[in-house]
Computed example of a mutant assay.
Amino acid sequence: MAHYFIAIQLPENLQVYFSAWQTELQTKLTYKQWTHQKDLHVTLQFLGEVDDNKIRQLTEALDELERVSSFDTKVGSLGIFGNPNKPRVLWAGVNKTNALAQLQKRVESCTKTVGFPEENRAYTPHITLAKKWNGTGSLDRNTIEKLKEAWNETRPMTVEEVVLYRIHPKQTPKYEVVKQYKLR
């Protein structure tokens, strides 16, 4: 079975912007996977393996997202998840506005109606730039702090649609748009 997730696709100008960050950061940090420019996104909910029947039900349930109004937020500022000496994920932050938090809850409500469980962790919106630390040793904490200081600029982003993606792990780019939901 294929894996799926629901997300906000970055507009092309922000894909280019964060891809430039990645190019520079690759000279300073060692990761196994750097997210392809076309795959940059803000996850709203990861679904995992889903059969075709459930995907049909889900695409109908998500139609209600088209009643949600578009909104603005800001993206940028470098961050990490995991051990600061060997951070497993390098990301760009997303301002968790009230509108974004409500959209994420609405997505979760839609998925719950077709049998997906609620996420137990708090929602932390971000754009994954790289994952799977591949350094030969530990990263100096000062290095991460200096990088965070250097890459702290934010850019505005208007959220106008939500996308249901299918994951193709052996392809580049990896994510296929299954359906787009235009916000009002």
Rank of each mutant, 00 (worst) to 15 (best):
M1P: 11
A2Q: 07
H3K: 11
H3L: 00
A7V: 05
A7T: 07
I8N: 06
L10K: 03
L10H: 07
E12G: 11
N13M: 10
N13G: 01
Q15C: 14
Q15Y: 10
V16M: 06
Y17K: 12
Y17T: 10
F18Q: 01
S19G: 14
S19H: 14
Q22S: 13
T23K: 15
T23N: 13
T27C: 08
K28P: 04
Y31H: 06
K32I: 09
K32M: 11
K32Q: 14
K32G: 09
Q33H: 15
Q33E: 14
W34E: 03
W34Y: 09
T35L: 08
T35D: 02
Q37E: 15
Q37P: 02
D39V: 02
L40P: 07
L40H: 07
H41M: 05
V42K: 07
Q45G: 08
F46M: 06
L47A: 05
G48K: 06
G48R: 03
G48D: 02
E49R: 13
E49A: 12
D52F: 13
D52T: 13
N53C: 14
K54D: 08
R56L: 15
R56T: 13
R56K: 14
L58D: 07
L58W: 06
T59I: 11
E60W: 10
L62E: 08
L62N: 03
V68C: 13
D72G: 10
D72R: 13
D72P: 09
K74Q: 14
V75D: 02
G76W: 06
S77I: 03
L78N: 02
L78R: 02
F81L: 12
F81S: 04
G82C: 04
P84Q: 05
P84M: 01
N85K: 14
K86P: 00
K86Y: 08
P87Y: 01
P87E: 02
R88S: 14
V89Q: 01
V89K: 00
W91H: 13
A92W: 05
A99H: 10
A101S: 11
Q104F: 00
K105F: 05
R106P: 00
V107C: 00
E108G: 09
S109T: 06
C110S: 13
C110E: 06
K112P: 00
V114A: 01
V114G: 01
G115P: 01
F116D: 01
E119F: 06
A122W: 04
A122N: 09
Y123P: 02
T124D: 10
P125V: 01
P125D: 04
I127N: 01
T128K: 04
L129R: 00
A130F: 06
K131D: 03
K131E: 12
W133T: 04
W133P: 02
N134H: 13
L139G: 02
L139I: 11
D140W: 01
I144A: 03
I144C: 01
I144H: 05
K146R: 14
L147C: 06
K148E: 09
E149W: 04
E149A: 11
A150Q: 15
W151Y: 15
W151C: 06
N152F: 12
R155M: 13
E160F: 12
V163C: 09
L164N: 05
Y165I: 07
H168F: 13
H168E: 11
T172G: 09
T172I: 15
T172R: 15
P173Y: 10
K174Q: 12
Y175P: 08
Y175Q: 11
E176Q: 12
E176C: 08
V178T: 11
K179P: 03
K179Y: 07
K182Y: 08
K182H: 15
R184M: 13
